[in-house]
Nucleic acid binder design. Structure first.
Length: 426
RNA sequence: GUGGGCGUAGCUCAGCUGGUAGAGCACUGGAUUGUGAUUCCAGUGGUCGUGGGUUCAAGCCCCAUCGCCCACCCCA
């Protein structure tokens, strides 16, 4: 016997009934984004490895050990995208979409990161990504966050809290970073193993440490706010004012930093405590330096990514289900003549003014078996066709959700007879 | 990458200190010959993740491997 081929580690399937949950979550998000004037952009799942190295940063975990990189047949190194921003920015530059223009884009699809899978963390995962390019002021930052709050509200998702912070400009952060590094070097002996490792590569992350032994040291560390330039401070104040006006609650978390190098000024994160340790459902921020860094004109930009697996899981926990889509009619047909008749009837009911949702029995079976299927389909009424009906040109209409009696009607009156039952649907 | 737990029918699981597998749900059929969701009866379905090893004998023990789960790390 042949070995069963399994899915690749960390790459899951979405099956019914979960797929209905995904559909609902995705449709809700898409609809809000379109309403706010964001347009869809579709970019390849594979890009040149160089793009991600340059945009995400050479010394990040993502680039160093999490990318799915391959050589293609010409020996060019290509990579399954670990995130969406790089590809979208590349596309914008390539097609001249940023020349004196502003763009509001959204995109969605799978991302790939070679990590050890656990709850809320997969090797193939899905994001909804939004990028606003060419906007400088805090208004667009606020719009993104307010828009997200609306999405959560429409999905009736609770237990999500918003944290925001500002990282200031690149210049101010460079200074802060240097001073912070110096501070932790002075207290090197007190640092744990993780923090020592972070010290050289990303000292800001030490501030994020969960180790209780370090909290005193962290509290006494230099604060980014002390380094903020006036402009960044004003930008952040502007954002907060707009969020306050909109009634979107938030917590300013001075320790909130980002794993990707290109962020500056606004950063934000929606987190939950309901999904275990991988609690970041949506994260984003400003990356004013990225376009220039990739060789384009200096272009302000801000965006976010929603982790769909995590969001769907959170939605599932709320137990709200998905809007169900059941047929109006299930056509039961026993015998070859009846089957042919059933197909004609089904199509004409679908074509009719009422545009009925019709499921036709396929796969044969007697009346009993077909009635069972009709019931399980969730249909409101069953239309029954057998030898007798075919020869007399009639059909039986049987309500499945009410106690009303079934009726036998001539073919021409079928749609009307069905309509009666659909109106009295519970 | 580091640690811990788990892997028995499609699904949820039971299987005592090792003696070659069971339940519920689902599915199929039946309870007077053309009719569902209740009830009753019967049936299909598993080389116990995979590969080795120990043993007279392994689902239960050992090793390896694949996968899942949880935490660290990181992040969506």
């Amino acid at each position: 016997m042949q070995e069963q081929i399994q899915a690749i580690r960390g790459m899951g399937d979405v099956l019914p009934p979960d797929s209905a949950l995904w559909q609902h979550v995705e449709a809700t998000i898409r609809s809000v984004l379109l309403d706010y004037g964001y347009q869809e952009i579709r970019v390849p799942i594979v890009e040149r490895t160089e793009l991600f190295k340059r945009s995400i940063g050479e010394v990040t975990d993502i680039v160093e050990k999490e990318m799915y990189s391959f050589d293609d047949r010409n020996g060019m190194s290509i990579t399954l995208r670990p995130e969406a921003t790089a590809g979208i920015v590349r596309a914008c530059m390539e097609h001249g979409l940023l020349r004196n223009q502003r763009q509001k884009f959204w995109s969605t699809g799978p991302m790939f990161r070679y990590e050890k899978p656990q709850k809320g963390r997969y090797r193939q995962f899905h994001q909804f990504d939004v990028e606003a390019l060419g906007f400088t002021g805090p208004d667009i930052d606020a719009e993104l966050i307010i828009m997200l709050a609306r999405i959560w509200r429409l999905l009736r998702i609770e237990h999500l809290s918003l944290q925001i912070n500002t990282l200031g400009t690149t210049e101010s952060r460079v200074q802060y970073r240097a001073d912070l590094m110096a501070y932790f070097r002075e207290h090197f002996a007190q640092l744990d193993e993780d923090s020592r490792r972070r010290l050289e590569r990303n000292p800001l992350r030490i501030l994020d440490s969960k180790n209780p032994d370090l909290q005193g040291l962290i509290t006494a560390a230099p604060r980014l706010t002390q380094y903020l330039d006036a402009e960044s401070e004003a930008h952040f104040d502007g954002l907060r004012a707009l969020l306050d006006d909109a009634g979107v609650p938030y917590v300013v978390n001075p320790r909130l930093v980002r794993g990707l190098d290109y962020y500056g000024r606004t950063v934000f994160e929606w987190v939950t405590d309901r999904l275990g340790t991988q609690g970041a459902v949506c994260a984003g921020g400003r990356y004013d330096g990225l376009v220039e860094h990739l060789g384009g004109e200096p272009t302000p930009a801000v965006g976010f990514a929603i982790g769909l697996e995590r969001l769907v899981e959170l939605y599932a926990l709320a137990g709200l289900g998905a809007p169900s889509r059941v047929p109006d009619v299930y056509v039961v047909a026993v015998g070859e003549g009846a089957t042919r008749c059933a197909f004609r009837i089904a199509e004409s009911l679908r074509d009719g003014a009422a545009a009925l949702r019709v499921e036709t029995n396929c796969g044969g079976g007697g009346f009993k078996a077909q009635m069972k299927r009709a019931d399980r389909s969730g249909a409101t009424v069953a239309v029954l066709l057998g030898e007798d009906e075919v020869s007399s040109g009639t059909a039986v209409v049987k309500p499945l959700r009410t106690e009303l009696e079934q009726t036998t009607v001539p073919m021409a009156g079928l749609a009307d007879a069905i309509a009666v039952h659909l109106r009295s649907r519970p």
